[in-house]
Simulated scan of single mutants.
Amino acid sequence: MRAILHVCTTCRGTDPAADPDAPRPGATLHAALSTAPPEGVEVRAVECLSACSQGCSVALHAPGKWSYVYGRLGPEDAADIREGASAYAATPDGLVPWRQRPVIFRKQSLARIPPQE
């Protein structure tokens, strides 16, 4: 089974001065990732990951693997998210070696969740 990358489309980002009528950064990030999905990964929109104070957020999981939630992201991070999600998909357990992770996946992890049994 493929890895799933859930992208919060309701995330507003961290800029309090952002135009409330502009497209939400989370929806823009989802569009960018959907246009060119990471290898071995299905991109899905989700309306909320309950990380609202952390800017744009994504969750990455696959059956039998560790799952992750990352925050403080934006549309400009799409290339790094693709790289990290592809590396995750290629592992048997979801544990990508530290130095092989993009910097945003090293420093912006909000949660690591054990595999479901």
Rank of each mutant, 00 (worst) to 15 (best):
M1F: 08
R2A: 13
A3P: 07
I4M: 08
L5T: 03
H6M: 12
V7Y: 01
C8P: 04
C8H: 06
T9Y: 02
T10M: 11
C11E: 01
R12W: 04
R12D: 10
R12H: 09
G13H: 03
D15W: 04
P16G: 07
A17M: 11
A17P: 00
A18V: 08
A18S: 14
D19A: 02
D19R: 11
D19P: 06
D19T: 04
P20W: 02
D21A: 14
D21Y: 07
A22V: 08
A22R: 11
P23K: 07
P23H: 01
R24N: 01
G26C: 10
A27C: 07
T28P: 00
T28D: 14
L29H: 02
L29E: 02
L29P: 02
L33N: 06
L33F: 08
L33C: 05
A36E: 12
P37V: 11
P37H: 06
P37S: 06
P38F: 13
E39I: 11
V41C: 10
V41P: 05
V41L: 03
E42R: 15
R44T: 06
R44L: 15
A45F: 09
V46K: 12
C48L: 09
C48Y: 04
C48E: 02
S50I: 00
S50A: 14
A51K: 10
S53Q: 11
S53F: 03
S53T: 13
Q54I: 00
Q54K: 14
Q54V: 00
Q54P: 00
G55W: 02
G55M: 01
G55N: 09
C56F: 04
C56W: 06
A59M: 13
A59N: 01
A59Y: 10
L60Q: 07
L60F: 08
H61F: 09
H61Y: 12
A62R: 15
A62Q: 12
P63D: 14
P63C: 00
G64R: 14
G64Q: 04
W66F: 15
G71E: 04
R72N: 10
L73Y: 05
G74R: 04
P75W: 11
P75Q: 03
E76V: 10
E76D: 15
E76K: 13
A78N: 09
A78D: 13
A78M: 09
D80S: 13
D80I: 01
I81K: 07
E83Y: 09
E83H: 12
E83A: 15
G84R: 06
G84C: 02
A85Q: 06
A89R: 03
A90G: 10
A90F: 04
T91Q: 12
T91I: 07
T91N: 06
P92T: 12
P92H: 12
D93K: 05
L95D: 09
V96N: 06
W98Y: 15
R99E: 10
Q100D: 12
Q100R: 15
R101L: 14
R101P: 05
P102M: 03
P102R: 05
V103G: 09
V103I: 03
I104V: 15
F105K: 01
F105M: 15
F105S: 03
F105Y: 09
R106G: 01
R106W: 02
Q108F: 09
Q108G: 00
S109P: 00
S109K: 12
L110R: 10
L110F: 05
R112S: 12
R112M: 13
R112T: 14
I113Y: 09
P114L: 07
P114R: 01
P114K: 07
P114F: 03
P115C: 10
Q116H: 13
Q116R: 14
Q116I: 10
